[in-house]
């Protein structure tokens, strides 16, 4: 079955961000495919490369990246939600003349249309909210 995930919860502020990751792992372990993981609202904070949690706590952006590399996941971050909250890739940093960029590798900024497309082509869309 083809799944897509909508992550609307920010890591550390809400458990939903972690639940989404666990769901993705369980999903892939059963042989299902994940068409896209879409980060929206405060969920975009799950894509920062600058998170530095204590060593005995999970680093969700790093774990998503590792999962994406193993399973070729499409990790898409809502660009409108992201740039408002100061989450930029190199292109957006240049466009807005900001001193740096902080999007974790293997994530991509794109429009809300990527959520609609994911919902259309996937068998199931699961939201992890806050």
């Amino acid at each position: 079955m083809i799944f897509s995930l909508l992550v609307y919860a920010a890591p550390h502020s809400h458990q939903g961000a972690e639940t989404a990751y666990r769901f993705a792992v369980a999903c892939l372990a059963q042989g299902h495919s994940i068409h896209r993981v879409f980060f929206y609202g405060d969920g975009v904070h799950g894509a920062t490369a600058l998170a530095a949690p204590p060593q005995d706590e999970p680093n969700l952006p790093a774990r998503w990246q590792a999962l994406a590399q193993t399973h070729k996941l499409d990790l898409v971050v809502c660009i409108a939600a992201a740039v408002r909250r100061g989450l930029l890739d190199a292109n957006e940093a240049r466009r807005y003349e900001k001193p740096g960029h902080n999007l974790q590798q293997d994530f991509e900024l794109s429009g809300l249309g990527q959520l609609a497309e994911a919902a259309i082509v996937s068998d199931r869309l699961i939201t992890f909210g806050a």
Binding site: A80, L112, A116
Partner: peptide, 15 residues
């Protein structure tokens, strides 16, 4: 606002 933006975007996809 996010609900509304999602509705508008989905409609643009002719759903």
């Amino acid at each position: 606002r996010d609900a509304l933006d999602t509705a508008l975007t989905t409609a643009v996809f002719e759903q």
